[in-house]
Design a protein around this nucleic acid. Structure first.
Lengths: 210, 210
DNA sequence: CACAAACGTGAGCAATCCTCGCGTTTGCAA
DNA sequence: TTGCAAACGCGAGGATTGCTCACGTTTGTG
């Protein structure tokens, strides 16, 4: 978790950090406008000029706090990641045995699916902007962090297994979960539900295998 | 398969089709240069001006045959898709029973993994340019076509199952296979091999379930 | 009150995609 | 052979957009 936050802080580069109250509010406005625009038209169609205009700031001010366009998206992604981490750690916190893991994992998938369905911005960020290298790396870092929480539980429940194999399993399960979510929200709800259910079966079989 | 080709033909839009021998050769040169540039620097960094220059044609000529930048990438993707279809249909052609399906599927995954490892352009096209809407749709169409071949086998082997459920399984297995390949080639070879192996386990469990 | 640091601005630079008007070559029918 | 329409080929430049930078303004502080 620490390392992810560190990456987020580092990538933006040589830009001012808002220290005064006024500028913090302005940064909030920029992020809110960007979020609304992404929800409306997708992150591909996000225009820096439009963000500045709708937020009531100049283009120069925008670039004082965000070194480039993808930094805005990364900032939004980072907020979602913080929520995700809370949500995952809560879901996996009290897993005591294999049965508990299956139940917790299944619920976690449902919760994540719900978030993907409800949050167009999160959906868009994780599905539409893969072309951006920094964003891809950020997604990978987030995913590894999330998979790490799953891995911790797996290690506890299956201490005799090869740690590297467990890590691979956890990472793949998480990555394919995200892929399934992206896919599920892009088709109609009926098929989406079926896809998520099929993913659950596959993931649970991998979680159970020993 | 037909429908996929149809889509590829339709999307490019109102552009000239090369009819004379001279122009066909020029189009080939454009595609070859684009392929080389993508292999070298990635499709994100593909510049239309550079393609024209390196192919020894003007920018105007380039745009006579490709309505926009993504059309070049789509044309390359279409070539790989044709190879894929052959490869998949051969691998699944003589599947007679569940045991045969498992063997054929496992081999197919290995072959696909080999292609992903060997073909930087294919790798790049299917991983780097998701931001392009037309390309995303093309990938989905290709994937549905490929999943369809798997579905045909599944239907034959499990005729009593709900067809919709089978279709979902086949589609998800294929999509997650592609996601796994993208992931596997982006990490080191050892972890990549483990990821592919883990995917095989998950997919086979879903293929076997009845 | 002076002053440095933080804040704010927007004209304009640079990169890039793509268009369009016009000149050239090719195939073909008279 | 020749005339001509269609296909081919060209590249200057329009349009968009990410981003910079030199300069003016506000704020906190001794």
């Amino acid at each position: 978790m620490e390392s992810v936050s560190a990456i987020v802080q580092e990538i933006p580069g040589p830009r001012r950090e808002p220290t005064q109250k006024r500028s913090r509010e302005r940064v909030e406005r920029m992020l809110a406008v960007a979020s609304a625009l992404i929800a409306e038209k997708g992150s591909d169609a996000l225009r820096m000029g439009e963000v500045a205009e709708k937020a009531g700031v100049s283009i120069g001010s925008l670039y004082q706090f965000f070194p480039d366009k993808s930094a805005i998206i990364r900032a939004l992604a980072d907020r979602y990641q913080k929520e995700s981490e809370t949500c995952i750690s809560e879901a996996l916190a009290e897993v005591k045995d294999r049965k508990g893991l299956e139940k917790a994992f299944s619920e976690l998938v449902d919760i994540y699916y719900g978030i993907f369905l409800a949050e167009p911005v999160m959906r868009d960020i994780w599905s539409g902007t893969q072309a951006d290298k920094a964003l891809r790396e950020l997604e990978l870092a987030h995913s590894r962090a999330n998979a790490g929480m799953l891995l911790a539980v797996l290690r506890r429940l299956r201490p005799d297994e090869d740690p590297a194999a467990l890590e691979t399993s956890a990472f793949l399960i998480w990555q394919l979960g995200e892929a399934t979510m992206r896919l599920a929200v892009s088709v109609d709800r009926t098929e989406g539900d079926r896809l998520v259910a099929a993913y659950k079966r596959m993931a649970l079989s991998e979680l159970a295998c020993s």
